[in-house]
């Protein structure tokens, strides 16, 4: 189980980033990547670099905003935070993923034809 990490589905990362920013306020790219890795229990296959592409996409759509700031140990870093529009989008994204997860688990719970007999 450990050596085969989950591939991220299309659109999953954007929701994860929004959720992370919504939960923790403003964060830099490295912080977001580490947080997602920790919360997921290192089960997803995440190249941290893809976070930055996701951040650009989210910024383009106006769901997050960015500003240069200084980190705890005095490094220049770009801090991202979620916008009001982003929160709306996150709510929609959450509802979608919950529904999809529900449907998937219901469909997968149907036993195989031979099992019941």
């Amino acid at each position: 189980m450990k050596e085969s990490k989950l591939d991220l589905l299309q659109g999953t990362l954007d929701v994860m980033v929004l959720q992370t920013l919504s939960a923790l306020g403003s964060l830099h790219g490295y912080g977001i990547a580490r947080r997602i890795e920790q919360v997921s229990g290192d089960e997803i296959l995440l190249n941290q670099g893809t976070i930055y592409a996701s951040l650009v996409r989210l910024q383009d759509r106006g769901w997050i905003s960015a500003a240069w700031g200084t980190s705890d140990n005095n490094r220049k870093a770009k801090y991202y935070s979620i916008t009001r529009q982003g929160r709306k989008q996150l709510a929609a994204g959450m509802a979608y993923w919950r529904r999809l997860a529900n449907v998937m688990s219901r469909v997968l719970a149907v036993p195989a034809a031979g099992d019941e007999a």
């Binding site: 830099h28 930055y52 770009k78």
Partner: peptide
């Protein structure tokens, strides 16, 4: 700059 900071951290 952003990626440099990322790597340093």
């Amino acid at each position: 700059a952003e990626l440099a900071t990322h790597l340093e951290l």
